[in-house]
Design a protein around this nucleic acid. Sequence first.
RNA 1: GGCCCGGUCGUCUAACGGCUAGGACGCAGGAUUUUCAUUCCUGUAAUCGGGGUUCGAUUCCCCGUCGGGCUGCCA
Length: 509
Amino acid sequence: MKSIRVRFAPSPTGPLHIGGIRTALYNYLLAKKYDGQFILRIEDTDQKRFVPGAVEYIREALEWSGIRPDEGYGYGGDKGPYKQSERQTVYRQYVQQLLDEGKAYYAFDTPGDLERLREKYQKQGKVFTYNHEVRHSLNNALSLSPEEVNAKLKSGEPYTVRFKIPEGKTLVLNDLIRGEITINTSELDDKVIMKSDGLPTYHLANIVDDHLMEITHVIRGEEWLPSLPLHILLYEAFGWEPPRFAHLPLILKPQGKGKLSKRDGAKGGFPVFPLAWTDPQTGETLSGYREEGYLPQAFINMLALLGWNPGDEREIFTIDELIDAFDLSHINKSGARFDPGKARWIQQQHFQRLPKAEMLEYVLPVLEEKTGLHLRGKKMREYVEKVLEMVRERLVFPADIWEWASFFFEAPKTFNPKAVKKQWKSQTPEMLSGLRNVLANIDPWEAGHIKEKVGAWIQEKELGFGKVLQPLRIALTGDLKGPDLFQTTELLGRDEVLKRIDFALEKLS
RNA sequence: GGCCCGGUCGUCUAACGGCUAGGACGCAGGAUUUUCAUUCCUGUAAUCGGGGUUCGAUUCCCCGUCGGGCUGCCA
């Protein structure tokens, strides 16, 4: 049995969105599971829609996600070139073959002609379809004499080539996810397979390349399901064995109607792209999962679960676990509404599972940027390690470190008014002055010992932990949240603690 | 309009004719904690409607309905 070869074949018309990455992921998982190859092919047959930077974006996004092609554009391989704009002569040859065999024909209808026909039909409440019913009355090689056709070709008149759909045939197609699909070929239209610019359309290029590149499984979005009959017919026309097909359910908007689009992220407050993208035309930047602080493994995990399940109740996977668990038979048939909240939860799960050292590496740059300090030296690094140890459970994203631990690096200059209102009472300054004296004389300065001494003092004064510790927390951190206060005081050091108490007494009294 | 594909808690989903329809996110409540967060416990809520087939339908078939996709010299 030959090994599995799958491909991801995006069109460089802009940034890939998460639906595209998910398609790439499923292809990748299948290839890795069965020790096959995952190929990247660039489908740039529409030069009008080409966007500069898009190819680079696609590659970077795949790399960041950990979905690395084994072969393809930029990755080598002996079945190239892997960019369709560089394969024009290949396609010409196959188009010619269909022409010679009478399976395709020249068509001279201009875009204007077709536009007028569509309008005319629409006025009558109908839809124009270039099919077996009308093809003999249109401006093409089926209605013109061979001499007329030759004359037109010689004169350089622009033409397209259309595939002649065999009529009245019932096709029974098989989709790995949806099962059997039956359709009559008379419902189909004679699709253009080569445009007047000499480049093939998607349909032709796609099947020629899949065949030449020996693709065994085509896993793509459901939006391609309607053209599956055409593709099968093309394979038949060439006498090639088609690959197996699997059409993935679409990813839908979190709210409202329709499939997730590139515009939805800006509106919904969540990214729809793996990496940030700056539109070369407008200069507008749209955020990406990487920039939001998502871990690649969390991002991948989240996408994997959108339309697939492992068949058991596991939800958190490493990439290797995904490869192991992945299975086409557990892909869903219906579209999945994207849920940003669940994505965040998966990120949290992955971030929390990070080994200490790795989490530190994620958090360090955030801290360095916020403080402007160099934190890689031994001493500072150890300090950050201790801070991280105290707050790590609270973090979902690397950037959260600042929300929870800024006070370990900068004394509060202001105090959260809500916290003050709640816990800073008229008798607080006096109490805190008393506590200050206790703290000033504690030795050794160690969390357990501080707790013991402060506890004794609270009891002696009959004050209660909350009444004392809450104002102290405000003084030290500026707010009413954070890790264990005694550990916090230990790490801050006695001098700093006393200084902050003095400052709070001065500011809030 | 035509063709195609779908429909289980608000959301992601499990149950491939047979338990009180299970899990997760979210939400609500509780426990723990000096606080916030974490963690733990509890609760919340679903088979689109109507017909069949069957001893028995979430599951199979038909109709309707709703949702989605396609209907380009785009991919």
